[in-house]
Amino acid sequence: MSETQTPAISLRGVNREFRRPRTSLTGTPAVVHAVRDVSLDIQPGERFGLVGESGSGKSTLLKMISGLDRPTSGEIHIEGQPIHDRSVRKLRWLRRRLQLVFQDPMGSLDPRMRIREIIAEPLAAQGIPRGDKINELLERVGMSTDAARRFPHQFSGGQRQRISVARALAPDPHILVADEPVSALDVSVRAQVLNLIDEVVDGFDLTLVFVSHDLSVVRHVCDRVAVMRAGEIVEVGTTEQLYEDPQHAYTQQLLASVPRLSEALAGASAAQLAARTRAALAGSGAQDEADVAALAEEGARADAGAAGGGGVPAEDIRHDRHEDEGGTIG
């Protein structure tokens, strides 16, 4: 990675705020700061992990990187081109560069569409002829080609996640963003999907942004990791640095609280795990669990809002969509 290379993803001072709905007629609505002043460069070919607990702002950040949400302030460039001040409709070019794999293997595939149509969606939207591409993609992700004419519900969670990967690969993107892609999967299937992601990232020379709450999964997949808490990135480092020698107290706390099979088999008890967690909590300045929880819940509301899921800051989101979509539909 040379100094002059254009980063695949570049964030500069990115902030995202949501307004909470007013609870009284006279009061001013509270503001939730979902992402605070995030600056980050992700180089082409890098496998970048984003770790945080629920409400850390990682989902909001990911939506902004994917052009599904816009920052309140700050700049986001994908391969040198700005996306922070563009409406969703003007980001068509972005879709050939960056694609997403979602968390929920059922919810991310339209139950009324056949697999063929689902995988063809990015092609149809870009006006790319599909040719034999659907079958090639299905084979690439380890599915048989007769899957094409079936519906999502006819597949298991792992198979659906393979289909999601095939869809993401359809427009030949340079960047793959994966949002908790294995957290809804069974252990035996999780390994298959992680191997698949590994394989396609290498095979297609992709830049990977991998978001997860599971530290060990991120450790397995990524070269470099950022830890988020309450909207801020508290620590960034290579996977080795971060896991072997965490600098920030919060990173230490996260690592301390993960139960590990090897330790447990060697006799580590729940009491010992809790003691280690409490010691780390004291180190990170949190008074007790309640502090941690309050922080997390606040952020979780912000994340829910960013998802547009009828969450608290819906007002703000709708405002954005107005500008984005008014031209076509309104």
């Binding site: 607990e53 629920s54 709450h213 530290l215 706390q253 996260l254 301390a256 609280s257 993960v258 139960p259 008890s269 729940a270 009491a271 795990l273 809790a274 280690r276 967690t277 409490r278 909590l281 669990e289 941690v292 929880a293 997390a296």
Partner: peptide, 15 residues
């Protein structure tokens, strides 16, 4: 639950 809270709740249940 998040990992930190998980560690504490597991201890609570076991004890």
């Amino acid at each position: 639950l998040d990992v930190t809270v998980q560690a504490l709740v597991l201890d609570l249940i076991v004890s």
